[in-house]
Design a binder for these strands. Sequence first.
DNA 1: CAAAATACGTAACATACGATACAGCGCTCC
DNA 2: GGAGCGCTGTATCGTATGTTACGTATTTTG
Lengths: 276, 276
Amino acid sequence: MISSIAELISDRIGTMPAGERRAAQTLIANYPLTGLKTVAEFSAAAGVSSPTILRFVARLGFQNYPEFQSALQDELAAQLQSPASRTLNPASPVGGGAVSPMLEATLQNMRETFRHLSDKQLADIATRLAERRGKTFLIGGRFTDPLARYMAAHLAIIQPDVYHLAGQESIWRDRLIDMGKRDVLVIFDIRRYQESLVRFAEKAHQRGVQIVLFTDQWLSPIARFARHVIAGRTAVPSAWDSSAALFVVAETLIGAVTRQLEAAGAKRIRDLESLR
Amino acid sequence: MISSIAELISDRIGTMPAGERRAAQTLIANYPLTGLKTVAEFSAAAGVSSPTILRFVARLGFQNYPEFQSALQDELAAQLQSPASRTLNPASPVGGGAVSPMLEATLQNMRETFRHLSDKQLADIATRLAERRGKTFLIGGRFTDPLARYMAAHLAIIQPDVYHLAGQESIWRDRLIDMGKRDVLVIFDIRRYQESLVRFAEKAHQRGVQIVLFTDQWLSPIARFARHVIAGRTAVPSAWDSSAALFVVAETLIGAVTRQLEAAGAKRIRDLESLR
DNA sequence: CAAAATACGTAACATACGATACAGCGCTCC
DNA sequence: GGAGCGCTGTATCGTATGTTACGTATTTTG
C-alpha cells in the first residue's frame, strides 16, 4: 500500500526518464517543499524545463499541478498535526552535556536519509556497482574523501579494477582518459561544493561515465550529471556538517554489493574465501 | 526577538481590525498551511474577502503575498530539517528488503556505543585533544584509516600540528622520533587487529605519547597502552563490520574539541573566522 | 447625535502562472 | 548503419491569481 507521495515517487522513479528522475530526486531531496513552489521554481531547482515538471506530476497520476500541490499540502497537514510527531524520544538521558543532542540529531539524520531512499533505489545502485563491466572510480571532496577511501577499501577487495582517485586535481584529471561508458564514478560532494569536482564530473559525464553521487540534501550541482543521487542529511548541532548518514549509506551499499556478488557466485568471492 | 511568523502574528493580533483578526486566527489554527494556499482559498477559509487577506499580510510587514508565502516556506523548511520537530513514519515499512535490518542494527550500535560512553569521558578526551601542548598524530588500520583521515581533516583546521600518518609502515615508524609526552596519538583499530599498528602503538607508548584508541567492543590489544579507549559496536547483518558508530563518536569529538577551542577563545579560531 | 475616519467588500485590471502544441534531438532496436 | 520511437525544450496561449480602485458599511469621536 502506498500512503505518501514520497513513497509513490520512490516506487516509480525507476521507470522514469532522465529529466523526470531529476525532478523526482530534487523533490525528494527536500521534501515536500520544492513541490509547493511554482512550476518555474521547481523546474529551475531541478535544472529541467517546466513541461518536464508537469509531465512528472502527470506520471504520478495527478490531473494537474494544483491537484498535486493540494495532495502535498494535505499530507503535510496530517504530518504536522499528528500527535506522533511530538512524541519522539521524550528522554534525552539528562547529562546536560552537549553530547546527547549530537547523537540524537545524527540518528535522526540517518532515519530521514533512509526515509527518502527506497530499497529499490539502493538495490539499483548496488547492481550498477556490482555488474559494471568496466572500472569503478571513487573520489571525494575535502571532508568526504575519506568516505570515498572507505568505500574503495572494501569494494577493491571483492571486485577488480576499483580505484580511489587521490592527490592533486591534475592527477585524477588525467585519469579521465581511462574512463568510458562502461565505467562507474562514485563522487562524494557536500557543501561547500568543490568547483574542481564539478568540472571533473562534467567531463566524466561527457565521456559517458555513469556517475553515482553522494551529496547533502541541498544537492551538489553534480546532480545534473549523476545517474544516481543519494541525498544525506548533514545538519547537526555542531560547527561542522555531519557525514555520518552518508557513511551509513555507503556501508549499506558495500554490504549490498557484496551480497549481490556472492549471490552471483562470482569467482573472485570464492577465491577470496579460500584464501582466508 | 521575533523569530517566527506565528510569533509575529500573535504579537500584533491585538491591534488588528476584526476581519484581519479572523484571518490571523484561521492561519494560526492550522499553521502554516493556510498561508501556503491561494489568496482566494485563504479568504474563503477565513470567511473574509481577498483584499482583507492582502491587507493582513501587508500589516505583518510583507510587500506582497508571494513574499509572505516565501517566508512561510523558508520557516517550514528550517522546521522540517531540524531534528527536534521531525518525526518519522511509523515503523519502517518492513520491506522484505535487506536495507532496514542494516539501518536498524547501525542505529542500535550507536545507541549502545554511547550508552557505554559517558559525557565526562568524551569531554575528557576532547579536552586532551584541545589542550595538548604538543602535536596530534592520527592513524588507522586497513579499513579505519579513512576515519583517521576524516578526523585529521577537521582537527587540522582548528589546530596547528595535526598530522595524519599515511603510507608505508616504514614511513610512520620513523615519525616516532618526533613524538614525546606532550603529544597525542589517535589510533583506529578494529578486528582483525593489525600487528604493525600494535607495534607502533607500543613504541609510541614507551616514548610517553598519550594514546586515544578507537576500537571495537572486543578491544584491540592496543588498549593496554591507551590512555583513553572508545569501544564501538561493529556488528551488522553484513559480510563486513561497521565502523559507523566509531565514525559518529569521531564526529562528536570533533564538535566537542571545536567548541572547547572556541570557548577558550583560541586565537586561531578567531583568525579562521576572519578569513571566511 | 452628527460627522469623520476607518474598515470592508465588489468589481475591474494586469501579471504571471500552468497548460499545450510542436520541433529537435538522442537513443534504442532492428 | 539506418529507421523509428520517445524524451526534452522552446514558444505560445488561455486563465487563474494577486493587486488596486472605489463605493458602502461600520465604528469612533467630538
